[in-house]
Design a protein around this nucleic acid. Structure first.
Length: 569
RNA sequence: CGGGGAGUAGCGUAAUUGGCUAUCGCGCCUGCUUUGGGAGCAGGAGGCUGCAGGUUCAAGUCCUGUCUCCCCGACCA
């Protein structure tokens, strides 16, 4: 492939609205262009890299008996009503109408469609297990698209769905899928971690996220050297130790205009750990009180999943007034139980002589004790894990935190979709059972961005060997020279015949420009052919990841062999 | 959804209290000279200043509306 014939519009400067390094570099390298907020065009170089990723994923999916299919991008509302997700999915769902006013949505994921497909064609245990997957555009109307292709409104994803006779078989397959995802991450050259995760709008009992470790990641993960790892949305929290002091009698204290835990603690010269923080929520229209220790925070995702509600929001100030009889900042659990459901976090169970709001303007209570001064309806792990927390698995080490980019997410769905959509099969006894499902997603466009976040320098992208748009770039310093041309063509032909993707920079440009562009677009290996070295029968070979000094002077034959060895061809 | 900022050539940008033919760099085209880490000289093409109204002798600049983009916030009682 000749550089001069390809559309690779590199830029010296990134557009001013590009917000992270990977977006800047992808645009500067001529891989993508922005069309509108969260919408991008893929140019030849970008698409080539995307296809490399696609092939790796395809190989791994085929290796776990996946079969590739292609589902529509537009789904009818009816399917989404069956599972209730037409309403649950909310504003993120792109909706549209046809000329007859029938409603549709653009695919953000395809559980409904695939379940509809198999319920029509799977009737017997003999047809199970089965795994179908596809590569496709996905659409999500993000609140705030940003970070280039990392959080865009249209993106490319591989989504796979497996179907099983029972949980045991799903369990077995889930492990294989986990391995396949691990392989994909390794083949893409990622530093990554697979962690337990909350399953969100997809649902199901259990899920793992594959996180590429990067400071710019939007997700936070908690992990321990014992092997435990979880998204902080999901990470379990251990119970706090019981305090042994004697329980005193509750007492009202004046705290004029002081509402936040921090301020009251300072005012009373006590520790936020002695506080029971009272958070009032509205869950699907009903009020709920959540209690948590003063120095901790409520994990709304845990709370939401505990309450099994669809919408959860902090209550409006007026609601707080009506419910507690006091303004924001003075709510407490005492005398609230009759009015509202109270869910206590594990962390409040063992506080003795706690401080809480008094449900009275400018007053707090001290020496409040659970079961003595107030009751609760339920207790659950509903707080956010935080610095200093002990690992919930080994219960020995303190957990560590890292930031990550979620590139893949696999779920044990169980019968969530097969039940609501009535997808069943007959077992060996002729008895009808719901099909047990798993689902496996991975974002291809996000993989590209994540790769660049993890692998770049001041000069540009540094592609890992496996997903580079080209594996080798030949910089012909002076392509007009007969000799240069001859050697270039020879190396090109030899490498191409072995399936190596080679880009020849044949442009009539100065060497400096060619080197800068080669570095910017990040091709892993560069062969430089110049007349001085050629007079000695030599060409240069340099890996993009090495610095300038690591150049090898080799004969064309040696160079070819070296490349073939690197790529194992 | 709330608050703030910004839209000028493919990219990055300038334009004083409203004032002359809308600036400069990169990129692009032509020619000459150069030729191993973003060359030099000369010449050239490219703009409905986001869009629609308004104020004015005069609008990139002021006003109104609208669209788009970016940033921050989205509540820890």
């Amino acid at each position: 492939m000749y550089f001069s014939k390809m559309l690779i519009p590199t830029l010296r400067e990134a557009p001013s609205d590009a917000d992270i390094i990977s977006a800047k570099l992808m645009i500067r390298a001529g891989m993508i262009r922005k069309v509108a907020s969260g919408l991008y065009e893929f140019l030849p170089l970008g698409l080539r890299a995307l296809k490399k990723v696609e092939n790796i994923i395809r190989e791994e999916m085929n290796a776990i008996d996946g079969q590739e299919v292609s589902l529509p991008l537009i789904f009818p509302k009816e399917l989404w009503l069956e599972t209730g997700r037409w309403n649950v999915y909310g504003k993120e769902l792109f909706r549209l109408k046809d000329r007859k006013d029938a409603e549709f949505c653009l695919s953000p994921t395809a559980e409904e469609c695939i379940t509809d497909l198999i319920r029509k064609d799977i009737k017997s245990y003999k047809q199970l297990p089965l795994m179908l997957y596809q590569f496709g555009r996905k659409f999500r109307d993000e609140i705030r698209p940003r970070f280039g292709v990392m959080r865009s409104r249209e993106f490319v994803m591989k989504d796979g769905y497996s179907f099983h006779a029972d949980e045991t078989d799903l369990e077995k397959y889930y492990k294989r899928a986990f391995e396949a995802y691990t392989n994909i991450c390794e083949r893409c050259g990622f530093k990554f971690r697979a962690v337990e995760a909350a399953s969100g709008a997809i649902g199901g009992s259990f899920s793992h996220e594959f996180m590429v470790l990067a400071e710019t990641g939007e997700e936070e993960i908690a992990w321990c050297s014992c092997g435990y790892g979880a998204n902080t949305e999901k990470a379990e929290c251990v119970t706090c130790e019981l305090e042994s002091s004697e329980k005193l009698d509750a007492e009202e204290i004046l705290t004029p205009g002081i509402g936040t835990v921090e301020d009251v603690a300072k005012f009373l010269k006590t520790d936020p750990k002695k506080f029971i923080k009272t958070m009032i929520y509205t869950a699907d229209g009903k009020h709920v009180v959540a209690l948590v220790r003063g120095d901790f925070e409520i994990n709304e995702i845990k709370l939401k999943s505990f309450l099994a509600c669809e919408e959860l929001d902090l209550a409006a100030e007026k609601t707080i007034n009506d419910l507690t009889g006091a303004p924001l900042g003075f709510a407490g659990p005492v005398n609230l139980k009759e009015k509202v459901k109270i869910v206590a976090d594990l962390s409040v169970l063992n506080i003795v002589n706690a401080v809480t709001g008094a449900n009275k303007k400018d007053y707090h209570l001290k020496n409040v004790n659970i079961n003595k001064d107030f009751q609760y309806d339920a207790v659950a792990d509903i707080r956010k894990i935080t610095y200093g927390d002990i690992c919930p698995r080994c219960k020995k080490n303190k957990v560590s935190f890292s930031r990550g980019i979620e590139i893949g997410h696999i779920f044990k769905l169980g019968t969530k979709y097969s039940k609501s959509m009535n997808a069943s099969y007959l077992d060996t006894n002729g008895k009808e059972n719901f099909i047990v499902m798993g689902c496996y997603g991975i974002g291809l466009t996000r993989i590209l961005a994540a790769t660049i976040e993890q692998s770049h320098d001041d000069n540009g992208i540094i592609w890992p060997d496996n997903i580079a748009p080209f594996e080798v770039i030949i910089v012909a310093v002076n392509f007009v020279s007969e000799k240069t041309r001859e050697v270039t063509e020879k190396i090109y032909k030899e490498l191409s015949s072995k399936g190596i993707d080679v880009l020849i920079d044949d442009r009539d440009e100065r060497a400096g420009i060619k080197f800068k562009d080669a570095d910017l677009i990040g091709i892993p290996y560069r062969i430089t052919i110049g007349e001085k070295n050629l007079a000695e029968g030599k060409v240069e070979l340099k890996a993009r990841r090495d610095d300038k000094s690591a150049v090898k002077l080799l004969t064309p034959e040696e160079t070819i062999n070296e490349i073939l060895k690197i790529y194992g061809r």
